[in-house]
Design a binder for these strands. Structure first.
Lengths: 153, 153
DNA sequence: CGGCATTCAATTGTGCACAATTGACTTGCA
DNA sequence: TGCAAGTCAATTGTGCACAATTGAATGCCG
């Protein structure tokens, strides 16, 4: 038996990534529960808080999600009264997403979320070295994602 | 407006993790397609190739998945003729998963998958430094996941 | 001007994740 | 011994992800 042909679960970067991502989402859940939004909905709101009035397509570019995921997600945010969805007037193919007053107000509630999570992850936001380590990890993950998406098709 | 209160999408480690994980899964898809299994099914097979005959609970411990996810996943693997599921005889609560000959044989097909993926991610398997960097990243992700799961409940 | 390719969001269908519950089975302890 | 607590896999219901298709709207090119 080929004991070492790189098929050991614990050797897989992919599994470490998979497990860490799910642990992260689970860690966010109790912090987002008071806001009444899910983790992907929270990501969409992060984009909207930076750029209110974006198109569904632009949101999709930013989050690497397609309309198959975003359309129902945005409908749920609309049902909760956090955003509005309206067809473009000049270009009737597009749909523009705007924050409602409630959606804008939710940003204040959300400010404590990243701090609470950093705390839970054992990062001291005041520690310069910890912040640098976090930024380095983030950079490595971004570089990895870019390399994975790039080649061929 | 508080321009810098840590709510910028690109500052979020969580988003880098989320995006990288999905990029990874998408990168695996074309490699797993010839095997006829999905990415989570592949992870379950990695466990089974290491430890044939494990219980559903043990598989769940290993992958951090519950029966709500594993039961249907394993039923699909059973339908494809890769595993069998049978109630324990001594303890009738548990279900034991065994690889079929086809399931065992698939391991040979799978051996090229991690190599192909490493290649796609721009890692040279022969480069000692690249392997060390990969191991370091894996370790950081594991440590992060552990810190996120640990505290309170 | 006409028509063909392209760009959009929406829809359809499959397969995870995960919380919560269910119900069978086992264990431990009074 | 009996029963209460705990352990299992399965089920139910919600919400992503994503491939593939649809159909409307736009842009381009002759």
């Amino acid at each position: 038996m080929a004991a070492s042909d790189h098929l050991a679960l614990d050797d897989q970067l992919c599994f470490a990534l998979y497990a860490a991502q799910r642990a992260m989402t689970r860690a966010y859940a109790p912090l987002l529960e008071p806001l009444g939004v899910t983790y992907p909905q929270y990501l969409a709101l992060l984009v909207l808080w930076e750029a209110d009035g974006v198109l569904v397509r632009e949101l999709g570019d930013r989050l690497a999600l397609d309309s198959g995921t975003l359309t129902p997600l945005l409908k749920r945010l609309e049902e909760r009264g956090l955003v509005t969805r309206q067809r473009g007037t000049d270009d009737e193919r597009v749909v523009r997403i705007h924050l409602t007053p409630a959606g804008k107000a939710l940003r204040q509630e959300a400010r404590k979320v990243p701090i609470a999570l950093a705390c839970r992850a054992g990062f001291d936001p005041a520690d310069k070295r910890a912040r640098a380590a976090l930024a380095a990890l983030r950079g490595e993950l971004r570089a990895l994602a870019e390399r994975l998406e790039e080649p061929a098709a």
